[in-house]
Design a protein around this nucleic acid. Structure first.
Length: 290
DNA sequence: CGCCCGACCTGAGAGC
DNA sequence: TGCTCTCAGGTCGGGC
């Protein structure tokens, strides 16, 4: 679920609310995530100060000084900052009064809770348990398995037309698969790869190597603009994604093709189609995209 | 190496 | 109502 814009929105919110806070206690209620949460984690986090929050691709990094807490939300994860009613098993997001969406986090999937020194808590909730929480020494972050193979961040200057053209050369794979390959460019998932290609006017199934320089240019430009707009809207909420305050993102109504198969294109009224690429359904407008 | 596929999980929604 | 099936925002490892 969460792709770059959702994680970046989360980073920005948490940077305001939890930086400077001290972790007083950690509860690991369900260690069985994509990789088991290590038993030592809770003790290692205790009394650590959250100094800064960063993002790399779809990973959130809590800077704890000598170590970094790496968090990935998988397909269905969320991280919410809540007021913890003392003594209670609180599940109310911090600004609960503004929760106008139908989305509710199921407390059974509150797998890890970081209690903070202002009697609030950071809660990791993840129904499908595809996420990851892991403590890494800051010194060799770059060498970490999870991060070392990542390509340039989709929002970085390093993701430019010359770079993408070089990566696309001799590749028979579909351009959408290439954009979703985190080793090529980091941060795009199924929603934003589809949306970037719509904006660029390129069909998702086109062979990467067959794209023209103009198309490569449009893809890179469209990706940057799309991600910035999505971040501005707090990301996309489809089913259970919620931001740090327990609110959904506001970008979903602006999606042009994702999850719209069978509906009419907002630009040309042609029916949006879907095909499977790399085992992911890929929506596109057969008229606007060539 | 590039590419494809299944696996890992739970829940929502459709169809019967 | 309740069952069964498909699909879902992501990675990872194995096989060819």
């Amino acid at each position: 679920m969460p792709e770059l814009p959702e994680v970046e929105s989360l980073r920005a919110l948490l940077a305001r609310s939890v930086v400077g806070r001290v972790i007083t206690k950690v509860e690991v209620r369900e260690p069985r995530l994509r990789r088991p949460v290590r038993p030592q984690l809770a003790a290692a986090l205790r009394d650590r100060t959250i100094r800064a929050i960063r993002r790399r691709a779809k990973y959130l990094l809590l800077d704890l000084g000598a170590d970094v807490l790496l968090i990935h939300l998988g397909m269905s994860g969320s991280l919410t900052h809540r007021r913890e009613p003392q003594g209670g098993d609180g599940v109310e997001p911090r600004s609960a009064g503004r929760l106008d969406s139908a989305v509710r986090l199921d407390p059974r999937h509150d797998h890890v809770k970081l209690m903070l020194d202002d009697s609030s808590a950071l809660v990791y909730n993840d129904p499908r348990r595809f996420g990851l929480i892991k403590l890494l020494p800051r010194a060799d972050l770059g060498a970490a398995e999870e991060l070392k193979a990542l390509g340039p961040d989709a929002l970085s200057d390093a993701f430019n037309a010359a770079y993408l053209a070089a990566k696309a050369r001799h590749r028979r794979t579909a351009i959408k698969n290439l954009l979703m390959d985190q080793r090529v460019v980091a941060g795009l998932g199924n929603i934003y790869a589809a949306e970037a290609l719509f904006r660029a006017g390129v069909r998702p199934g086109r062979r990467a190597a067959a794209l023209t320089p103009a198309e490569i240019n449009r893809i890179v430009d469209a990706t940057g603009a799309l991600l910035r707009e999505a971040i501005g809207a707090g990301g996309t909420s489809f089913r259970n994604y919620l931001d740090a305050r327990g609110r959904p993102g506001r970008f979903a109504p602006r999606l042009m093709v994702y999850a719209r198969a069978g509906e009419r294109c907002y630009v040309c009224s042609t029916l949006i189609r879907s095909r499977v690429l790399g085992q992911r359904s890929s929506c596109y407008c057969p008229r606007c995209q060539r």
